[in-house]
């Protein structure tokens, strides 16, 4: 993208907060020379290296994979590393910590709530045959069509942008929020999973999807195209059908045993020994 209209300098307005020292967050301004290809995260590094070494934020992969660098950029929740300054089309870039989470310091939100909500919804395959899961003798068989019913929702990187944009999360700490609900739905639709009743313990109550009113902000801000609002509405359909006794029971993915009596073709090497377990 061309940056023909961008000035030489970018003004970063950063919402700073140091616990113990500050009562309320304060806005500070920094000027940084613009370079082609500069992301918001690059800008923060430039400030830390050459203007103010005390500036704190969280980032790791710097390529939109780890989900560490969610922040409020010009009022919208986005990944700092994934946002080109040229994309913002503004010479002033405001950066604040993700709202709806306590601030640890400067741009670092405390995401404990997100992880607690996630864990409360058992985001893993639940089945009665625990012996098979501990010591697998084969694979669960799933068609690619079945996989496509949840694949989109697996791309979540837990960056918390959705929870920062969600109007309900702005007041309600009990609500599970778009991220955890999407993950619960991802497992509820997985044909290998049999944990609907377990997750329902949480979903049927106040933490469930009833607090979603389809304002759609989670889907608009999601940097990975996971579309949490879509998952949540599908989840409501499932739970409403369940409340009316109309929920279709789907067959559980069967175990696919290792093939027996098949000769390895000559010239194909043995797989290496497992390195773990």
């Amino acid at each position: 993208m061309s940056n023909g209209n961008l000035p030489e300098q970018i003004v970063f307005r950063i919402r700073r907060f140091s616990p113990g020292r500050d009562k309320e967050p304060v806005w500070k301004e920094y000027r940084v020379a613009y370079e082609a290809g500069m992301t918001v995260l690059d800008g923060l590094w430039r400030i830390k290296e050459s203007i103010d070494p005390t500036l704190a934020w969280r980032a790791s992969c710097r390529m939109g994979v780890c989900g560490s660098c969610g922040m409020l950029i010009n009022g919208s929740a986005m990944l700092g590393c994934n946002t080109q300054i040229s994309e913002l089309a503004s010479s002033v870039v405001s950066v604040a910590p993700l709202p709806n989470f306590p601030i640890v310091r400067d741009l670092v939100p405390d995401l404990q709530l997100l992880f607690d909500d996630h864990a409360a919804l058992s985001p893993y395959i639940i089945r009665a045959d625990s012996a098979e899961q501990e010591n697998p003798t084969g694979e669960y068989y799933q068609t690619s069509k079945e996989m496509e019913t949840y694949l989109q929702f697996t791309y979540c990187i837990k960056c918390a942008c959705c929870m920062a944009a969600c109007p309900t999360c702005a007041t309600d700490a009990l609500y599970s929020g778009p991220m955890a609900l999407t993950q619960a739905h991802r497992y509820n639709t997985d044909t290998r999973d049999d944990g609907f009743e377990v997750r329902k313990q949480v979903l049927a109550g106040e933490a469930g999807p009833w607090r979603c009113h389809f304002a759609g902000e989670c889907s608009r801000v999601c940097p990975k195209g996971v579309d949490p609002a879509k998952a949540i509405q599908f989840m409501k359909r499932q739970l409403v059908a369940d409340a009316l006794g109309l929920r279709k029971k789907r067959p559980l993915a069967p175990l696919l045993k290792k093939p027996e009596g098949i000769q390895r073709r000559p010239g194909i090497a043995e797989a290496p020994e497992p390195t773990v377990g």
């Binding site: 113990g20 910590p97 709806n100 601030i103 640890v104 939100p109 007041t171």
Partner: peptide, 14 residues
Amino acid sequence: VKDRGHPNRLGIWG
């Protein structure tokens, strides 16, 4: 962190 940090919820404005 919760004791010392800033709650930063948007509230009804959100």
